[in-house]
Each structure stands twice: as C-alpha cells, then as structure tokens.
Write a protein that binds this DNA or RNA. Structure first.
Ligand code: FES
Ligand code: FES
Lengths: 142, 142
DNA sequence: TTAATAGAAGACAAATATATCTTTTATTTT
DNA sequence: AAAATAAAAGATATATTTGTCTTCTATTAA
C-alpha cells in the first residue's frame, strides 16, 4: 500500500472536516469517525497529530471540535507529510539507503519520474478541491 | 513506502540471482544476503516464497542454490505480485474498501492514471533488463 | 460556580511485519 | 554408504503499526 492506514484515515478525515468548515461547522471525533468509517479512538490520535502539525485546528468544550483554517491553502501533500513523512516521495523503491543518480538502483530511472509526478500531483491537490469533489455527492469517504 | 521491506529484498535478490544465472551460476542464500545487504534468514524465507510462486527456482545440496529459469520472461510486476499481492495496483489510495468509478473517492480520478501507469511500467520491466542495468556497473543493489 | 462537553495525553493491547533459530529433507561428493 | 552442502519448513522472537481505554485539561452553558 502506498500510504499507511493512519494516513488514509487522515486524508478522509481532513476532507470531511473541511466539508463542515465550509458550512461554518465543527466536527467532533465521534462524528468524523462515523462519517469516514474509522475507529473512533485511533482517529482521535491521528487528528491530534494533524492538529499539532497545524494541518487542522481544534477547540475543546461544548460546540468544540475540529476545523480547518483555510482549505484552499492546505494540500494533500501536507497531510501525507504530517503523517507518513516525506520518504514516500524520496526513498528508493527497492530500499537502498539513499536514492540518487550517483548510486542508482536498477529501477531508479524508471521510478524517479513517477515519484516526482506523484509529489507534484499531491502538491497541486488542495483540500478545497477535494471537498468540492466530495460535495458533488458523486464522491465518497467510506 | 510503496513496497513492503520483504518485497524490496525480493526484487534486489531476484536481480542478483539473475545476474548469476546469466553466468551459468547459482547463488546461495548467504551469498545473496551478502550481495544485497539483507538479513540471511529472512531473505531465505522470501526466496522460499518466490520459489513456491515460480518466480525463482532452487536446488538443494552441493552446487545447489537459487536461479531463474528465464530472466527475460519474468517482470518486476511478477515479483511484486508474489510478495505484496496485486492490491498496490488496484486499492483505493485513501483506503475505501473498493476502488471504482461507481463509488470514487475524492482522489480517484487523480490516482487511477498514476497507478495504472505504475502497473504498466512494472509490467514492462523484465528482470533481464534490470540485470543488464546492474551489470553495467553503474547500478547498485545495496 | 457547577455540570456537561470535547479534545489532549499517556498507558495499554492486539495485529501484522520483520527477523531469527532449529530441525528436516534433498542432493552431491567422497 | 557416509559426510557435507544447501534449501524447506516450522517454531519462536522482536519491532512496528494499528487500535483501545482511562485520566486529565480546557471550554462552554446553565
Ligand atoms: S536509487 Fe532506487 S529509486 Fe533511486
Ligand atoms: S476510489 Fe479511491 S482511488 Fe479509486
């Protein structure tokens, strides 16, 4: 799998949260987990991390919950980096300790372009765009 | 990471084994692990799986070891499927239970082409080609 | 100012992936 | 036939990821 399970949940959660934010609402952990079909407590941990990394914001107490400051300025790549780190965009496909043209593996010149493309595509895809897709109602989060 | 550690070792091992096969030699587990920088016993297990799945062949006893019947007819995709399965080419990026145009996630139309391209590229890349690259001596397996 | 709400934090548990060790089986050489 | 070699098989161990549970802290509403 390309992304960790945590990262998959993270992306789905962020899209859902953003879809609430654009309606001026906040989302609780329980509501989010229900909406994306993920385990409640585990989802809480992931959201905690995203909040620490400033991908999301949260507030406690009644009417509290998670929200996103500006969906148009957060990109898919930001979520991925917050949870799985940057390695998926830089690490050697077959696990050499470094990936470089100086010491390439036999797949380097095939893989680097694909990986770079992935980084570019993930860097272009804003949460706002994903919310628009989702709100179309032809798209799903679970 | 895109591939499991097992799968990374598997690919490196197969390329090394094939580089021996083209010289009419067989490779022992110990030699392979040394050549690709992997843990010996764990590598043994992976090679066992690859042999069961007919990606490799092996023989016991003195002058025994692993070899590959026809490097030109085994493709990267075959190694990946043998170890990690086909899911990396078919599963939803954000973990929906099924990936389809009928029930697409907000990344579906961005990801499907990339994933398909990966399958095509992996399907085109033969072990023989990877060995040629490796034998060039400008390419590395550890 | 008390009760209720909701996230933060940390300890704990289960599942999976990675790695090791020992015994058995097949093959070859002497 | 016996000794040596090398993979197969299975049991066991460790690490990481995924998931749960309990307590603490902040905020809000009554
Ligand atoms: S060295 Fe392996 S992908 Fe670059
Ligand atoms: S449904 Fe998510 S990638 Fe196809």
């Amino acid at each position: 799998m390309i992304l960790s399970k945590s990262c998959e949940y993270a992306i789905r959660a962020v899209v859902y949260i953003a879809s609430k934010t654009v309606k001026e609402e906040r989302a609780s952990i329980i509501e989010i987990a229900e909406a994306i079909g993920s385990p409640v407590a585990f989802t809480g941990k992931i959201l905690q991390t995203l909040t620490r990394k400033k991908v999301l914001a949260s507030s406690k107490g009644p009417n509290g919950g998670f929200y996103i400051i500006n969906p148009a300025s957060v990109y898919l790549v930001d979520i991925v980096r917050a949870i799985d780190g940057n390695e998926i965009f830089t690490a050697c496909v077959i696990g050499l300790t470094t990936c470089s043209a100086e010491k390439p593996c036999p797949m380097h010149y095939q893989m680097k372009p694909i990986r770079d493309q992935l980084r570019i595509d993930f860097g272009k895809r804003s949460v706002y765009e994903m919310v628009q897709a989702f709100e179309n109602n032809n798209y799903f989060l679970k």
